[in-house]
C-alpha cells in the first residue's frame, strides 16, 4: 500500500509543471493520429480498390465490345436499324441488376434474333458476368445487383413469415398471374412472345426481373413494389414450390385446356376401351356344371 502511494506520488509529481499541457496535447494528437492510421483505410488501399474497379470496368468493356456492342453500340447507346427497328436497346442506366439477370439466365447474348431471347445456359463465367455488370453500371446510375438479404425471410417470426406469404400471394395474383399464370407456369404473349415459367427460377433472378422489367415485362421498381413486397412475392413462390400437390398430378398447372385433354384421352379412352371389352365378352348360356346330365 505504501509502495503504491509512493509511486503514484512520483507519477503525478509533474502534473502541474509548465510543459504538462503541451505533453498532453502531443500525446492526444499522437493517439488520434495513430488510431486514425490504424483504422482508416490507407491511401494505398483506396487506390488499390479504385484500380480494381477500373480494371473490372475495363475488362467488362473488352468483353462488351466483343459480345454486346454489335447490337447495343460501342458505348451501350443502342442501335436503331435504318427501318426504325431497334437492334439493341440503350443500356445507359439499366444498372448492374439488368446485366446480371440477362447474362445470368443466358438470355444475353442472343443466339439468334427473335421475338424474345429464351433463357439458356450462361455463356460467360461468373467473373466475366461481374465485369460486364460493372461496365454497364459505369455507363449511368441504375439498380445494383440485389443480395440475399433483400429477399430472405430470416429474422422474422413464424407468424410474420406466414403473413408475408399470404401478402405475397395476393401481390402475385394481382400483378403477375395475368401473364405468368396462377401457378407461374407461364403464358402466351402477342407475336410469338411468352411469359416464361417462373416456378424454377432462382430467387435472385425473380428479384432482378421485378426490379428491371426485362423484355415486355413491366418494371416493378422499389417505388412501385417495395423491397419487402418483392420479398413477399418470392416467399409465396417458394411456399407454393414447397407445398405438396394436394390434388394429385398437376399436369403442368396450365388450366382447363389440359383437363379437357385428359377427359378425352384418358377418361373417354379408358371407358370406351372397357365398353369394347364388355361387349366382346358375353356370357356362355350353354355352359354346364360338372357331372350334369343332359336328358
Amino acid at each position: 500500500m505504501r509502495l503504491l502511494n509512493r509511486s503514484a506520488g512520483r507519477l503525478t509529481r509533474g502534473r502541474r509543471g509548465p510543459l504538462a499541457g503541451l505533453v498532453v496535447l502531443l500525446l492526444g494528437l499522437l493517439m488520434t493520429g495513430g488510431l486514425y492510421s490504424a483504422f482508416a483505410p490507407s491511401q494505398q488501399a483506396a487506390a488499390d480498390q479504385a484500380t480494381a474497379d477500373d480494371e473490372l470496368v475495363a475488362q467488362g468493356r473488352e468483353l462488351f465490345l466483343v459480345g454486346c456492342a454489335f447490337c447495343h453500340g460501342k458505348n451501350g447507346e443502342g442501335i436503331e436499324t435504318s427501318d426504325g427497328q431497334q437492334l439493341g436497346p440503350v443500356l445507359v442506366g439499366v444498372g448492374a441488376a439488368a446485366v446480371d439477370f440477362q447474362v445470368g439466365t443466358g438470355r444475353m447474348p442472343l443466339a439468334a434474333p427473335g421475338q424474345q431471347g429464351p433463357s439458356k445456359k450462361q455463356a460467360y463465367s461468373d467473373e466475366e458476368r461481374e465485369a460486364l455488370a460493372a461496365y454497364v453500371a459505369s455507363l449511368g446510375p441504375g439498380p445494383a445487383i440485389p443480395s440475399e438479404q433483400d429477399w430472405s425471410l430470416d429474422g422474422l417470426t413464424d407468424e410474420e413469415q406466414e403473413e408475408a406469404v399470404v401478402r405475397g400471394g395476393q401481390i402475385f395474383l394481382t400483378n403477375c398471374t395475368a401473364c405468368h399464370n396462377f401457378a407461374g407456369s407461364g403464358g402466351a404473349m402477342p407475336e410469338g412472345g411468352y411469359a416464361p415459367n417462373v416456378r424454377e427460377t432462382e430467387e435472385q433472378y425473380v428479384y432482378e426481373a421485378l426490379l428491371t422489367g426485362p423484355g415486355q415485362m413491366p418494371s416493378f421498381s422499389d417505388g412501385n413494389l417495395s423491397q419487402t413486397e418483392k420479398r413477399d412475392v418470392i416467399a409465396y413462390l417458394n411456399s407454393v414450390d414447397e407445398s405438396p400437390d394436394y390434388g394429385g398430378l398437376t399436369l403442368g398447372s396450365l388450366g382447363p385446356v389440359v383437363d379437357g385433354a385428359v377427359t378425352w384421352v384418358v377418361g373417354i379412352g379408358v371407358l370406351v376401351g372397357f365398353a369394347v371389352w364388355i361387349a366382346a365378352h358375353t356370357t356362355r348360356t350353354d355352359r354346364k356344371k360338372k357331372g350334369e346330365v343332359t336328358t
Binding site: G169, T177, N181, P256
Partner: peptide, 18 residues
Amino acid sequence: AYGPYDPSKVTAGSQPDW
C-alpha cells in the same frame, strides 16, 4: 392456387371447361 375471385385479378390460361 387460383385464390378467391376479385375483379382486379385474372390468370393466363383462363379457359372454360372443354
